[in-house]
Design a protein around this nucleic acid. Structure first.
Lengths: 392, 392
DNA sequence: GCGGTTTGTTGTTCCGGGCAACGTATTGTT
DNA sequence: AACAATACGTTGCCCGGAACAACAAACCGC
C-alpha cells in the first residue's frame, strides 16, 4: 500500500534498466537501447553519461560500419573495472571467482572441501582464495559485493544457513563470518544454490525471458529455484523451493531431515547408487559411472536409472500441477539423470501432470554449465548495483 | 527489461494507491492518507480532487471532533455509486452479487445449480440474476466490470474454463459467453475460486499484510490460491495452484483427472464420506453430518475425520516445504475439516514439514465467511480501476 | 561534393511532486 | 469573549526528469 515512485526513483529505475540491459545482453548501441527501453534519445544520452561518469559503462565508436546514417555509439559494461566476488559452497568442494559486470568470469579458484568444515573454518578458506586473486585486480576497480551459493536452507534476512543436512551445517552464519573477513564496505549476500542457478539461467541462460520456471538442482540432496511471475520465489523466511523434502512415498526410507520418503530419498545421488547396488559415494562421478554402465548394457544399472527417472518424472509432475511453469530445467546431477532417463521422466510426467499444465512445459538442461552457481552468486551481488547504480 | 515508469504513470500509481487505500481500509482522513502514502499534503489534495471529480470518492467534514486543530476532511469510497458485478459458479449453486467499492455487498442472489449445465446455459442464469438486481441500481452509477469465480482451471488470457471435473466442464468459454450477455463496455474477468478467495483474504481478511500465503479451498475437489511475495501466483497459463492433483499416494484411488492417488482423492468431500462409510453425496451438509457424528462419539466417523485430517496435514506439510508460507488458510469444507481434526493436521504437518519452514506458519480459517468468493470476484474487476482510476 | 539518412547534442517545454507561506477551522486558556 | 496553540487545506513557486524539436555530425551511395 505504498505510493508510487517519486521522480528521483524514476531516474534510479531508468539507470538500473539501462545498466541491466547491457549487463545481460552485452554491449549495444545507444540506438538499440533507445528502442529497447522505449525512452527518448536524449534521455538515453543523459543516462549513459551518468553511468559512464560513474565508471560503470564506456562508450566507443563502433568498429563495424556499413549502414547509412551517423553511427551510434556502443555502450559496453566495464566488465574489467566493475566486478563482484562469487563463492559456491558445495558438498565436496568450494569455488571462488571474480565475476565482471556482464557476467564474465575473470578469475577463479577451486578447493576440495573436507567433510565437517563449519562456517568459521570455511570463511577463511574463501577469503584466502579471494586474497590469492586480489593481486590480479587492476587498480581503480569497483567491487560491488560478494555473493555466496550454499547447498542448504538460507535465511533471507541475514544469510544464516539454517540447515544443510549433507554438509552437516546447522545455523551457520556464513554470511556474517565471511563479511568479517572482508572489507567492511563489501556487502555479502547468501542464497541457496538452486535459487542462484535459477536466477542465472533466468537472467542469461535457458530460461531467459521466461517468467515461470522451475530449476531443479540435485546432488546428494535436491532443491529447486523457482521463478514465478518473473520473480524469485523466496517464501517468507527464504526457505522456499525445498522440493527435495516433498514426501512422495509415505513408506519410503528415512531422510536426513527426519521425515520419511522425501523426494530426495528417491532421486538423490544415493538413491541411484543404492538402486544400482553400489556403495554410497558422493560426487558426480559415481552417478556418471552408473549411467555409463547402463549405457553399456548393465541390466541392474539400467533398472536403477529407469526407477529413479520414474520418480523424477513423478515429482516434476506434482510441481508442474502446483506451479504451471513454462519450463523445467534439470541441473546438477539431475541433468545427467534426466538425459539418461528422458523417456521415463516424460512418460511419468505425462501420467501425473494435468493436461492443461503439461501443455506448454519445456524440459531443458542448463545453458550456463559449471559456471552457473558462480555467475548466479555474482548476480546476487550485482542486484544491488542494478537497483541503484549511482549509489556505488 | 522495460524502463521505469514515466511521469504520467507516477500519477496513475499514486491515484491507484490512494483509491486502493480507501477501498481496502475504508474511509479515512486526508491527514491519515498523507502519512500512510508518504506523500505531501498538497499532493494528496490534488489526487483526491481528481478522484472526487471522477466520482470515485467523496469528501466530508468529519462528524467526530475532539482533537485540537483544523479537522481533516474524510475521504470515503463511493461505495453506492461505484460497483462491480460478482459471480460464483460452484458445484451445486450459483451466486451473483453487486459489490460496491470498498468491498461491500450491496445486493445478492443465489440459485441452485442443476448438474450438467454448460457455459452457454449458465451465462443466461447469471445475466438474469444481474437483470433482477438492475432496477435497484441508482442512476448515475459507475460499473467497473464483472468478475467470475469458478471451481475449475481457468486460462488466464481469456478466461476459458479448461477443465472443471466436478461440474463436468471442458473448455467452456464462460467469460466470453457472459460478456456477450452484458454491455459491450463491461469487461469480464474469470479466475479460480481458490485464487479469488485468497485474493480477498489477502486484501481484507485473515491474510491482510501477509506476503506469502496459501489459501486452501475444498469442496468435492481441492485447489489453492497462492500469494507469493505479495503477488498472486498464476503460473504460465493461469493454472497454478492445482494442489489437489499433487499425487500423495501412488497406490491411491483413481482421480477424475485420470491420475491416481491425487491429494483430493484423500481429502475431498467424497474421501471423508467414503471413509465414514456413507454414500457419496456432494455438498457441505454431508461433510458437516460426518463431523457432527464424530463429535457425538460415532467411532467410524471419528476414525474417518482422523484419517482425512492426517492426509490434510500431510499435503500441507509438502506445500509448506515448497512455499515456506507464513500462513495457511483453510476454506470451504477444508475449514470444517481443519477445525474438526486440528490435532491430526498439526501433528502430521510437524512430522512432514522442515523445522525452518514450520517456524512462522500460522494455520487459520477465513475471515470473510460465505462472501469471500463474491468479494474476491469483485476484487478482480476492481483491479482494473485501481490500476488506472481515471480511465473509467 | 551532394543529397539522403541516422544519430548525438542542445535548449525548451511540460508534468508531477515537494516546499513554504498563508488562510482556516477547531481546542484550550485567560 | 479574546487570544494563543494546533492542525490542516490551499496557493504559488521551485526542482527534477523526460519528451520534443531543431540543429550538428557522421555515414552512405552516386
Amino acid at each position: 500500500m505504498r505510493a508510487g515512485p517519486s521522480q528521483e526513483e524514476i531516474r534510479r529505475q531508468n539507470l538500473g534498466a539501462l545498466l541491466r540491459h547491457v549487463h545481460v545482453h552485452g554491449a549495444m548501441s545507444r540506438a538499440e537501447l533507445t528502442s529497447a527501453l522505449g525512452l527518448n534519445r536524449s534521455t538515453i544520452g543523459a543516462l549513459t553519461a551518468d553511468l559512464a561518469n560513474a565508471g560503470l559503462v564506456s562508450e566507443a565508436t563502433p568498429k563495424q560500419r556499413g549502414r547509412a546514417g551517423r553511427p551510434s555509439l556502443v555502450v559496453r559494461p566495464e566488465s574489467a573495472r566493475v566486478h563482484a566476488w562469487a563463492f559456491s559452497i558445495e558438498v565436496d568442494r568450494l569455488q571462488a571467482a571474480r565475476v565482471g559486470l556482464g557476467g564474465v568470469v575473470l578469475d577463479r579458484r577451486e578447493l576440495s572441501r573436507p567433510r565437517g568444515l563449519v562456517a568459521a573454518e570455511t570463511a577463511p578458506l574463501l577469503a584466502g582464495a579471494l586474497k590469492e586473486m586480489q593481486p590480479a585486480v587492476p587498480p581503480g576497480t569497483i567491487c560491488v559485493g560478494a555473493g555466496i551459493a550454499v547447498c542448504g536452507m538460507v535465511r533471507r534476512d541475514d544469510g544464516l544457513v539454517r540447515l544443510s543436512p549433507h554438509t552437516g551445517w546447522v545455523n551457520e552464519p556464513i554470511g556474517a563470518t565471511l563479511a568479517a573477513e572482508l572489507d567492511a564496505e563489501t556487502p555479502v549476500v547468501v542464497a541457496n544454490v538452486a535459487d542462484v542457478c535459477a536466477f542465472a539461467e533466468h537472467a542469461r541462460g535457458a530460461a531467459a525471458g521466461r517468467d515461470n520456471v522451475i530449476y531443479l538442482y540435485g546432488d546428494v540432496g535436491v532443491g529447486a529455484g523457482i521463478i514465478a511471475g518473473g520473480r524469485r520465489l523466496t517464501g517468507h523466511g527464504g526457505y522456499g523451493g525445498e522440493v527435495g523434502h516433498m514426501v512422495v512415498n509415505r513408506n519410503g526410507s528415512r531422510c536426513e531431515c527426519g521425515s520419511r520418503g522425501c523426494w530426495e530419498t528417491e532421486i538423490g545421488e544415493y538413491a541411484l547408487l543404492h538402486a544400482a547396488g553400489r556403495p554410497a559415494a558422493s560426487g558426480r562421478e559415481a552417478v556418471l559411472a552408473v549411467i555409463d554402465a547402463a549405457d553399456r548394457g548393465d541390466a541392474r544399472a539400467q533398472a536403477a536409472v529407469r526407477q529413479v527417472g520414474d520418480w523424477l518424472g513423478f515429482g516434476v509432475g506434482n510441481l508442474v500441477n502446483i506451479f504451471n511453469p513454462e519450463m523445467v530445467i534439470f541441473g546438477g546431477t539431475m541433468r545427467d539423470l534426466y538425459l539418461a532417463a528422458a523417456a521415463q521422466v516424460r512418460s511419468r510426467l505425462n501420467s501425473v501432470g494435468l493436461s492443461a499444465c503439461l501443455e506448454h512445459v519445456r524440459l531443458r538442461t542448463p545453458q550456463l554449465g559449471r559456471d552457473a552457481a558462480l555467475v548466479g552468486a555474482a548476480e546476487l551481488a550485482f542486484e544491488r548495483l542494478l537497483a541503484d547504480p549511482l549509489e556505488v
